[in-house]
């Protein structure tokens, strides 16, 4: 697996987790403007990272939810999640 691809996947996972945690915080603190600002910033970063990944390596989601409709079936060529060794630099 391309190290750059793996790095992008890791970045997407980190940003998604941060967005989920901020979302949970905002559920009980809806008036916290700082948290809301951070949430908007992180979600924008996440959207950009996903777009960058899909443009370079194909769609992240099935059923056409990705932003790369022309290469919808490319995901079958990617390694499955359990085939990725996150501790090594290679696949």
């Amino acid at each position: 697996m391309d190290p750059r691809q793996k790095e992008l996947l890791m970045r997407i996972m980190e940003l998604e987790f941060a967005c989920i945690d901020l979302d949970l915080y905002l559920a009980t603190h809806p008036d916290d403007t700082r948290a809301l600002q951070d949430f908007k910033m992180r979600s924008q970063e996440l959207m950009n990272a996903k777009m960058e990944y899909e443009l370079a390596y194909g769609p992240l989601l099935n059923y056409g939810f990705g932003t790369n409709p022309g290469r919808t079936w490319q995901w079958i060529d990617e390694p499955w999640p359990w085939e990725i060794n996150w501790r090594r630099s290679g696949t």
């Binding site: 996972m13 980190e14 987790f17 941060a18 945690d21 901020l22 603190h29 700082r34 951070d38």
Partner: peptide
């Protein structure tokens, strides 16, 4: 009541399971 303060580094947050 939880107050919004410092947040963890994103990689550390993913490892620890919380952003706070």
């Amino acid at each position: 009541w939880q107050m919004y303060g410092r947040t963890l580094d994103l990689r550390e947050a993913l490892r620890l399971g919380t952003l706070f």
